[in-house]
Design a protein around this nucleic acid. Structure first.
Lengths: 202, 202, 202, 202
DNA sequence: GATGAATGAGCGTTCATTCAT
DNA sequence: CATGAATGAACGCTCATTCAT
């Protein structure tokens, strides 16, 4: 087993077990066992359980950023860029259900609040991609003039929800449905063109 | 202290402490202390900690349903009913931040998945109000024809997100902003009237 | 088993085991076992191992003070008071070998240095009895004019040494030998009467 | 680094770290680090931690014996020889505080008792110098007729005590005070010349 | 019913020691 | 010879749960 392989055995085992049993339900002993290493070995790679959890989070976050940036159509229209982001995000989560569940659990925990705060305060570079994206859209009048956090909620809240439901087996997302969902999110954030507002249906 | 008062002292203490310290950080001893009862007393009302947590969840869920049903404009248009639900939900969460945080923590935990599954399988009556609401909207062609779970995600995902950000102090929701957010969610789920589709903005 | 009996079972077990195996060789599990209580029970009486160790020390110290004060001949000559202190101390240590060994171990440890410092700085009331005793002797010109710490060393250093050797079985202290040893300590600290200095023997 | 240099790097590091953190607080990893060798290397020189601790002790003891024997005035009077021993001992301890603290820690530990027993049983040659010294003094009637262990306690107990207090900063030993202390110890062990016993002071 | 002292399994973590390189 | 990554038994401590009062 190569040097780095041991570290990734550990994060892999932690990912699986935390998804399955939660942060506190996944004991270090279980993680060591599943990783096929001794209990003390984990501590050669991570100072303590908190550091393991946080490091794993950062790695998964980084992967998400990479996924969004890959083939990012920087030159295309705002809407096409939005579709890229939305569809890639959904695609990534659906194909990496454990990573998705882990990120969800992390965001919803004492750690998560701190990270969210840093992101909000702009201390976090990773968020910049999407932050700049929305600020650009507002500056150009393409999307509604709303606080950034609201755009995040409107655009990504539903995506996260459907990803979770798909992973839990409650719905099945195919390419067509995925596109329709991203389109619906788009309608939530877009600035309706003046003169074309449809009458309210009932 | 009356019979039922003791029980509600316990759930009240559990609510506060779990919101503050998480499920695992809030020990039974702390809860008993804050509730002003003996450690063993909790077990007269709840078989074990899991049952306490789940029961408290059910009570808070039930409160949400009550809030949505109160002054529900059953005779008004679908859109008005949607606005009622959305605004009441936001209003309730914002004014009961502990309950909101508890529900979020619960949904994001091993318990949460089981409950979600029950809801989806129709074993859960509480969900019916909203389930029937969306099914009615689809039947009448007012909202898009999408799986129920997708409508849930599109309509409530963003609301939950902005409620959390408001509670954590990242944004400040006033009446006007709240209305604009519910309106944006509406645009996500509505069926655009034929012939009025606006051109795609860029 | 009465309420306080449990606490004293614990301190008793700790005393024996620490004397036998040292502070770190005596594990909390061993202590609990020997005391006949559960592992967690110790923590109802002592916040942690350090507190247990320190509390036990204070109790044993207090016993020593009580022993010295009992039948203390406050009205007799300085020398008689010295003999009282010296002989009682030896007697007490010899008859309570575990307590003696515990105190020795404690004094020789990180804890001990701190306590010694407090004693030296006068923060410690227990020490006052003996401190005042020596200061009185110096003021009256009965004993040499030396730093307090030196008097402590001259008077008690040898007593502690012979107590240890007796307990370990290297010597056997009977009443006569005990008296001769205290007398020798007295000769170390006394101020030789002018005019009676004996010639130096070789 | 020469063969033996590695060994002395290890004992040097062990000395420093054990004085600083105690036997149990100084881990083998820390010692290896400070010595600049690999963790496993220590085991080429010492079978295990206990052996390292005991070997280091024997070396420091040997150094003490060397110090006492250097310039030992074998031809001078008993009293002068006593002064030599006492003053050299104090001088050595004060100028090698780490070695002193190590010896103290060692004597006060499970190891210490075993060594003391060996010494007493005559299994230990190092002690002989001083043993013979006292036996000679008693044979010549210069010092009191007391068990050897008692002479040890009377002569060295106080010296060790004041050395410790000096090192911990509670007193400051200059040449004059050092001489007065050795003189006081002398008075404790000397056989008072017949006819010159001073009247008991009060 | 209500209590809270007692329990002990299980936690996160350390560290003396081993052994493949 | 020397290394240091790996080990796992053992540590101090917590806390959900029980039960004698």
């Amino acid at each position: 087993m190569a040097k780095q392989s041991k570290r990734s055995e550990i994060t892999g085992a932690a990912l699986e077990l935390i998804v399955e049993h939660g942060f506190h339900g996944a004991s270090m002993a279980m993680i060591a066992d599943r990783a096929g290493v001794g209990a003390g070995t984990i501590y050669r790679y991570f100072d303590n359980k908190d550091v393991l959890i946080t490091e794993l989070y950062r790695e998964l976050e980084e992967k998400v950023v990479q996924v969004l940036m890959k083939e990012y159509p920087a030159e295309k229209s705002f809407r096409e860029r939005f579709q890229h982001i939305g569809e890639r995000l959904l695609h990534h989560f659906i194909n990496n259900p454990s990573e998705f569940r882990y990120l969800e659990q992390f965001h919803n925990s004492p750690y998560g609040v701190a990270v969210r705060r840093d992101k909000f305060m702009g201390k976090w570079n990773h968020g910049d991609l999407v932050r700049i994206f929305f600020q650009d859209g507002m500056a150009r009048g393409v999307i509604k003039d709303l606080p950034l956090a609201v755009h995040f909620a409107l655009a990504f809240g539903p995506l996260v929800g459907v990803a979770r439901d798909h992973i839990l087996g409650f719905i099945s997302l195919d390419d067509s449905l995925r596109a329709r969902i991203v389109e619906a999110c788009w309608q939530a954030i877009r600035e309706p063109s003046p003169g074309f507002a449809p009458p309210n249906a009932s």
